[in-house]
């Protein structure tokens, strides 16, 4: 019953280590180092990273940028709520706003082109979850997240809100249409 009794040796920290234990500690440490190494490695050689680009903003300042983009680049409206679909120029800055309980506006992007996607919340915290790809980002009020994305598949993608944001959280969907 020694784990619930004081150690048998007074100088227990000088007891030799068992072979299985020592070997395992060494193997586990090597694996832990490999796991750490994968993160910087992927930043250099991997294609899916969030480099942490972000700015302070305010709901008012951010919505001005969104409105400007909607005015200049809306190509059509969808759903019974007349949600604008915006087709921004390839390579441009694209603004997406999260609020209770929608993503505004809907976007139409070209496959293979690169866009700088800016996102911020007007009110509470929201979660950008692009389905069915399953790319997930946290969206905060007062912060403007910028990710550079290159859609390499076409079709209709849905933005699900995956940070709980109140009673109609489950209705908060947005769309990104990717055309060839």
């Amino acid at each position: 019953m020694s784990a619930i009794l004081p150690p048998s040796e007074r100088i227990w920290w000088k007891q030799p280590i068992d072979r299985a234990e020592g070997t395992w500690v060494a193997i586990a440490l090597v694996w832990c180092l490999i796991m750490f190494f994968m993160m910087p490695y992927w930043h250099v050689y991997g294609k899916q990273n969030y480099k942490g680009e972000a700015y302070r903003t305010t709901p008012a300042a951010f919505s001005v940028k969104v409105e400007e983009m909607v005015q200049n680049h809306t190509v059509r409206h969808v759903t019974d709520r007349n949600i604008p679909v915006v087709r921004p120029p390839a390579g441009s800055d694209v603004y997406l706003l999260a609020r209770l309980w929608d993503w505004y506006p809907a976007l139409e992007l070209r496959k293979g082109e690169t866009y700088r996607l800016h996102m911020s919340s007007m009110d509470w915290q929201h979660g950008f979850s692009l389905q069915p790809l399953n790319i997930n980002m946290q969206i905060l009020p007062g912060y403007e997240t910028v990710i550079t994305i290159t859609p390499d598949s076409s079709g209709e993608f849905t933005i699900v809100c995956n940070e709980y944001c109140g009673i109609l959280h489950h209705q908060m969907l947005g769309k990104i249409y990717v055309v060839d």
């Binding site: 784990a3 040796e9 030799p16 234990e21």
Partner: peptide, 13 residues
């Protein structure tokens, strides 16, 4: 320790 009377393989580790 209770069920088996097991002692730690090594206190240090």
């Amino acid at each position: 320790a209770i069920v088996f009377g097991a002692r730690p393989m090594s206190e240090r580790v």
